[in-house]
Amino acid sequence: MSTLHTVNKSPFADQTLQSCLTLCANGDSILLIEDGTYGALTAAPTTALLNSVIARGITVYALGDDLAARGLHSQLNNITTINYQTFVRLSCEHKTIQSWY
């Protein structure tokens, strides 16, 4: 069984998203929330690593409310924008939830 990772820190300020991307396992999912949604921008220092993680089968999501509040939309077409209902569903579909903050 797999893990859902939530990340709430901006990759422009903090290593949190990088750590998460380094340690997530195949079959896991990553959800960018709060300031973590800045990780959905192409200019983020984590973009290359994030794309490589997606290439090996990990799904990455971003919370729509948090993107919208910041005036953002996901610039990476391989990141899916979701709402809280889907956040709940993802946490049911994975055995554990690791919160990176």
């Binding site: 709060e34 409310d65 948090d66 809280y84 209902q85 956040f87 709940v88 903050y101």
Partner: peptide
């Protein structure tokens, strides 16, 4: 102070709405 409380509240509401 930070967003933890707000995010948790929204999650709790969504989970309950969904019948969990």
């Amino acid at each position: 102070s930070d967003s933890a409380s707000q995010s948790a509240l929204a999650f709790a509401q969504a989970a309950l709405d969904d019948g969990h």
